[in-house]
Design a protein around this nucleic acid. Sequence first.
DNA 1: CGATCGATTATGTCTATACATTATAGGCGG
DNA 2: CCGCCTATAATGTATAGACATAATCGATCG
Lengths: 232, 232
Amino acid sequence: MSAPLHERIRAGIEAEILSGTLAPGARLPVEHELMRLHSCSRMTVSKALSALASAGLIERRKRAGSFVARPKVHAMVLDVPDLGAEVIGRGQAYAYRLLGRRMRAPRDEEEKLLAGKGRLLQLDGLHLADGMPLALEHRLVALAAAPEMAEADFSAEAPGSWLLHHVPWTEAETRISAVNADDASADLLGLDPGAALLSVERRTWRGGERITSVRQLFVGSAYDLVARFGPS
Amino acid sequence: MSAPLHERIRAGIEAEILSGTLAPGARLPVEHELMRLHSCSRMTVSKALSALASAGLIERRKRAGSFVARPKVHAMVLDVPDLGAEVIGRGQAYAYRLLGRRMRAPRDEEEKLLAGKGRLLQLDGLHLADGMPLALEHRLVALAAAPEMAEADFSAEAPGSWLLHHVPWTEAETRISAVNADDASADLLGLDPGAALLSVERRTWRGGERITSVRQLFVGSAYDLVARFGPS
DNA sequence: CGATCGATTATGTCTATACATTATAGGCGG
DNA sequence: CCGCCTATAATGTATAGACATAATCGATCG
């Protein structure tokens, strides 16, 4: 019942926008009007409007007033799951099987950029759900950014999960595409060659420094990425 | 040079967090300390801290102080592009070719849910970039939510773009997966049967009312979805 | 010794006011 | 009629203070 006043004002205007009562492009009451409506000070309505503005719902223009933003390119929220947690959350047994582990020097420009001054740790593995192959993972880690990783044991915890808990990223970029399985991948995943795979490539940074680069190949029929937008 | 004071304070603390100077869990100076440091009022530092808190970078606890949040970043931002704008942005020519258009009654439970009290408009089409097939689109629109759409002309503007500008959504859910092309789809996209396709299924709402449901099949090798997280 | 309870300290909200900034509208001159 | 220019109306930033709220620490009492 007793949410803060600025929050109630914000929610009220948000509801009017989402319901369409306030159409895109519509001008909403000026701050002094809202002050009068809610019998409060200007700082309070300003706080409500600032929140709406930073959420992209309205646009504020000096001298002109505040307007409902025209919905441009919408953005959605894509969950970046810890794969293990995700599988267990679906009630399946999760396992990670390490297939290969090498420490080596960077081989090309892209890898040099990742490695920085140090060497690279290459980790190949298989994610399993209820014993069935779910995804094939090829990962490169910059040892300069995560030196402790050279000694880590990945029989219990997958590298992705280990990294998330020890060297969390602050920036990341994900590319999602579809590819046909080559013979080796198909064999490891227990599929026919040519089967459709969902490819998720992710590069992560921590304050400008590259941490890791990973490519996960999901069995197309066994995994969906889900993104959402809206009042959760 | 002269960014607002609260913004400079916010940026300063953000930088310390991202660089690791302030480690996760660390307590940061109390508001009165920051007031003294920057010779400003409490409202100003409070504004800076509020921004950091709403961005999830810090956690504020009464009586205890403010702490750098332990990073449990699970979400990234996925742009939902207007496909035409996206293609043109890459410097290619964009076209949409309507393949089929029918008005009909809902056929199953899922479609009934979408249609509401009205009928459905089914639109099948092909997105082209520089004359090459980019994606096959199968769309169902609830005419109850967008009656004007029955008369719209889709030779100039794709249905997705039309909808975005006329009946913008407020909630959406996207499922992304990979599938092998069936014979008909492969033929329309100019691919061999079995080629990997990126399947993007999206359902949208406007304040509780279903608007449209679309499945886009992208040529796997020609299109990447990109998601980002981090200080833009 | 342990549980409870109050004092203290931090954040949370709000007011009233002041001045800065900026885009617009409308007037004024050419 | 057009272009400049200024007054004005809106938001943006900041101050100082008041009271609310919540959690923690420590002291007191059973």
